[in-house]
Simulated scan of single mutants.
Amino acid sequence: MPISDKQREFWNTKDPSEQFDVIVFEHSRFAEPIRLVLNQYTSMIFNGEEYIPAAGKLEKPNQEADLIPTATLQFPRIHIGDIFKQYTQIISAFGWNESITMRLMEFTELDMNTPTKSWTLYVAPDGIRLSKTTVQIKATDYNPMSLNISTIYTIEEYKGLARV
């Protein structure tokens, strides 16, 4: 079977080093961030931090095609799901004024201290789906909590308010 020009170009330009998908979930109510490295068997250290292994399926954000870049992460509940559920239960109803920040990074085995690609995405309360077998997380580039913040008018800034 002959090799096409597109296949030849792919194999000539593809980086032969192993790539790692690393995810960090952060929130002000979490005692410490949840750090995951996808589809690895042992914990690994990236940029001086230890990441726990998790089998999962990741759909990375497509910045060219989507109006709002969205990443979808799905992994078995048996590995990380119960930990993730405990962390989300820590956030009270009033704690959802700020969304969970999901940092998605790609590392290579050549440089495990500097990510080759990085995204900062936000997980809304409705972006987390827990079932008996899986956990599905949907994160977007758009922070859903930014709409809930109203402008605070002060007398120093708006002098006309003093007469009201």
Rank of each mutant, 00 (worst) to 15 (best):
M1K: 11
P2I: 09
D5N: 15
K6C: 03
R8L: 15
N12F: 14
K14Q: 12
Q19C: 08
F20Y: 15
H27E: 04
R29A: 06
R35Y: 02
R35G: 01
V37C: 08
F46Q: 09
G48Q: 06
A55R: 06
A55Q: 12
G56F: 00
G56D: 03
L58D: 06
Q63H: 10
Q63I: 11
Q63K: 10
Q63F: 07
E64G: 04
T70Y: 00
A71Y: 05
L73H: 04
L73F: 06
P76L: 03
R77I: 10
H79K: 04
I83F: 03
I83V: 14
K85E: 06
Y87K: 14
I91G: 05
T101H: 02
L104D: 04
L104G: 05
E106T: 07
T116C: 01
W119P: 03
A124E: 04
P125V: 12
G127D: 11
S131Q: 10
K132P: 00
T133H: 07
T133M: 08
V135N: 02
D141H: 06
D141I: 05
N143L: 05
P144C: 05
L147K: 09
L147A: 12
I152P: 01
I155M: 09
E157N: 13
E157G: 05
L161G: 01
L161P: 04
A162G: 01
A162S: 12
R163F: 13
R163L: 14
